Amino acid sequence: MFKKIDRRIWIALGLILIFPIIFNYTFLQFSVWGVVGDEDSWISFWGNYSGGLISALVAYIVAKTQVKKQYENEMSSKRYTEFISQLPSLIRTKIELEMCYQNLLEAAGYRDGFIQYLMTVEYANEDLDDYADDIEVDKNSQSLTLQQINANSFELINDFFNTDLSIQVVSFFNFYHRFVKALAYEDNFRARDMEDTYFMGEKFRLWNKFDNGNVLDEVNKLIEDLNKEIQRVKIAKETGSIPPQ
């Protein structure tokens, strides 16, 4: 289906081609009052007139096509430049995610070790079923200092070409930032205030998401996706065009 502008062009061409027939059956076949000139002069005039119109129309079509092609080339060049310029941000974000993954493994290992301590030392001589709730609270309430993500990590994501990947990385960084901040908080059991209550609740919420949300698998998947995107950029730099996903 032709676009609106294209339909107008075809209509104009059709009118130009049909007009001689209409002109012949009106002005040339009959004597029309007020029309000056014989048939030959009118045919000569019409030939010059229609030739000028057709030339102008052809020039318009050519110019329009060239402008459109130039715009498409500029947009393609801009997309290519933006695509390959994201490479440093992709690499730095991948390094950041790998750091987060190792820290999460450390946190999970620390908690597993503490659970083992509770079961074999703290409650060694007790019926563990009677202390299941206490163990659940204790295992998620421990404080642990982990490395926080760099302050500019979120800014790096602005360079990503893949919007879906950007959203996923932002979502994980938000979780990780909250997780590290909550784990670092030391609960004041003797004088617990609103801040203590908030951060203890935050620890339990985030540990629950960690356990039930397959966070480690999510980070691994993000690292794999970043590796794929890095390879696509390298291919683009070699070939001069953006490869398909």
Rank of each mutant, 00 (worst) to 15 (best):
G109D: 15
V121K: 11
E136N: 13
E96C: 10
R178C: 12
I149R: 04
N158V: 04
A182W: 05
L144P: 02
E122P: 03
Y176C: 01
Y80W: 09
C100V: 11
E82L: 14
M99D: 07
Q142Y: 08
G113M: 10
F173I: 10
I167S: 10
N174M: 06
L144W: 07
A107H: 13
L104Y: 01
Y101A: 06
F83H: 03
K94R: 14
Y110H: 11
F172V: 10
L105G: 09
A108W: 02
Q116C: 06
G113C: 12
Q116V: 05
Y131L: 03
N174Y: 02
I91A: 11
F114T: 01
Y185I: 07
A108K: 15
N125G: 06
D159K: 06
K139L: 05
Q116P: 00
E98I: 15
T145Y: 12
K139A: 15
Q168Y: 06
N174A: 01
Y176N: 02
A132V: 07
K139N: 08
K139M: 15
E122W: 09
D129F: 12
A132I: 09
Q142P: 02
F160E: 05
E122F: 15
K94M: 07
L183F: 08
E96V: 03
E82Y: 10
M99P: 01
Y176V: 01
S141Y: 11
F175M: 04
T163G: 02
K181I: 07
T120Y: 08
V121A: 10
M99R: 14
E98M: 13
A107Y: 12
N158S: 10
F114K: 06
R178G: 14
N152Y: 10
S153F: 00
T163K: 10
T93R: 07
L165E: 07
F154G: 08
M119T: 08
V137L: 11
F114W: 08
D159A: 13
V180L: 03
L165N: 09
Y131V: 11
D130K: 14
E136G: 09
F114H: 10
L104V: 15
D164A: 12
I157L: 09
Y101H: 08
A184E: 08
L87M: 09
N150I: 01
L144R: 12
I135P: 00
L97M: 12
Y117M: 13
D164V: 10
G109Q: 14
S141G: 15
I115Q: 12
V180S: 03
Q148P: 10
I115W: 05
K94P: 00
V180M: 02
C100S: 04
L128F: 07
Q116Y: 12
I95P: 00
L165G: 05
